[in-house]
Write a protein that binds this DNA or RNA. Structure first.
Length: 389
RNA sequence: UCCCUGGUGGCGCAAUGGUAGCGCGGCUCGCUGUUAACGAGAAGGUUGUAGGUUCGAAUCCUACCCGGGGAG
């Protein structure tokens, strides 16, 4: 069975309908990929996944390698069995933590926080990245080989190459060096994977119970580096392409430029994943550019912080549940929303739950935001199907 | 009636001689491959009242008002 298939190519744009087939099910693309960093979509029990309409989720190798560790996951037969997430899963490589923990370390250093606070990112070399574990304080080294080993033990259906997410504002010199490093790391990921998984070569590209590897395009905010990166990644023995290093602080225009630069170099037969993008208004634009899947923490994090989404005409608006002005609001978050939260509860009640830090509040808000996103994606798929997008 | 104890920002508390801090709440802002049920910021008090001691009082003294406890 073929891993990825383009079912329909839009004539109005580069948008396309596709099918991602994995041992744990088939995903209709364009697809949203909710984030389940530690093997759980925060606040959502797996039994709700069908009702919400979630097709696939995104786990993180950094967090899972630190706890419970690949060895434990392997003993349990992989993340699907261990976590109860019986859907297609993608795992991130820990590459993003090179950026996010580096940023946190930088902030720590600048703000001179508490004595004894250890930097979380200890260094990046050609070999890999060294971290201070937030779990136990031990030093831990991530290399492409270690990432691939842990991803194999985690057992997600789709794995990401180990990359370096370049921080916004990086000099061209640094961006070039980091992009080259990401490319070297990709070669090592492909090599590490081949040893374990000889069938994962581009000519075959069938899942056959194996993990599919996505290479990651970097290049920062520099057009030539982005193009060069896309060309380089596209010709490797990979099963899909991801675009990384976006939404790291740049403007929306810069972000759209970065994606626009690489789009022409993405082989049409490969599925394309846009890492970390989660603003629906942007996503629509990226779907038009031919992107197939999107992971993002924002909607689930916003939900836990009391912000839910409402559709106002063609716009997507944020609605804050936490203010006292919601105390007597009898309506649901959205009157015509079919989700569990909106069918059963008033804004007033959910506001009360947030005010009192009751766990059901986080659940209901997350439930709504995920449902909202899944419906938006369903809507986009229908529009492509009908030739309207 | 007497004794003890306490009255500090909306709420709960801290600061016992050097012109008031914290938590929660409220308000505003921010969250994009999750160190994030998180973070940032501004606002808010003539320390129950009236006197006194002192260079200086939330803090010591006196009286009164209010709460809690005890004795009769």
């Amino acid at each position: 069975m073929k891993f990825f298939e383009v079912v329909k190519q839009s004539k109005k744009s580069k948008a396309r309908l596709g099918l991602l087939s994995t041992p744990h099910g088939t995903v209709r693309t364009p697809a949203f990929v909710p984030v389940a960093t530690r093997g759980t979509i925060k606040a959502i029990p797996p039994k709700d996944i069908p009702d919400i309409g979630i097709q696939i989720a995104f786990v993180n190798t950094f967090h899972l390698a630190l706890h419970p560790g690949g060895e434990v996951l392997k003993k349990f037969g992989g993340i699907h069995k261990y976590s109860g997430l019986n859907i297609p899963l993608m795992s991130d490589s820990a590459g993003f933590q090179v950026f996010s923990l580096g940023r946190a370390s930088e902030r720590q250093r600048r703000m001179r926080t508490r004595e004894g606070d250890e930097a979380l990112l200890l260094g990046i070399t050609e070999e890999g990245a060294r971290f201070r574990s937030p779990v136990d304080g031990n030093e831990i080294a991530f290399t492409p080989e270690f990432s691939m080993q842990e991803q194999a033990r985690i057992g997600a259906d789709i794995v990401m190459a180990f990359d370096e997410c370049i921080y916004y504002g990086a000099s061209k010199e640094y961006a070039k060096k980091a992009t080259q490093r990401t490319h070297e790391w990709l070669l090592r990921c492909v090599a590490a994977k081949k040893i374990k998984n000889p069938s994962s070569v581009r000519s075959a590209r069938t899942f056959a119970g194996k993990q599919m590897l996505y290479g990651i395009v970097q290049g920062g905010t520099y057009k030539d580096l982005r193009e060069e990166s896309a060309k380089f990644v596209a010709k490797q023995h990979i099963d899909g392409i991801a675009i990384g290093g976006v939404a790291v602080g740049e403007t929306t225009k810069e972000m759209k430029d970065a994606v626009g630069w690489v789009a022409p170099y993405l082989p049409p037969e490969l599925p394309r994943h846009l890492l970390g993008i989660g603003r629906l208004e942007d996503i629509v634009a990226f779907v038009r550019q031919g992107m197939d899947s999107f992971d993002c923490v924002e909607l689930t994090r916003l939900a836990r912080n009391g912000i839910v989404f409402q559709k106002k005409g063609a716009r997507f608006e944020r609605y804050d549940l936490t203010g006292t002005k919601r105390l007597r609001e009898k309506d649901p978050i959205e009157k015509d929303c079919p989700c569990y939260a909106c069918r059963n509860f008033s804004v007033a009640f959910i506001h009360h739950l947030f005010r009192e830090r009751e766990l059901l509040g986080y659940y209901l808000a997350t439930y709504h935001n995920l449902s909202f996103f899944e419906r938006a994606f369903q809507d986009m798929r229908e529009k492509i199907e009908q030739g309207n997008l």
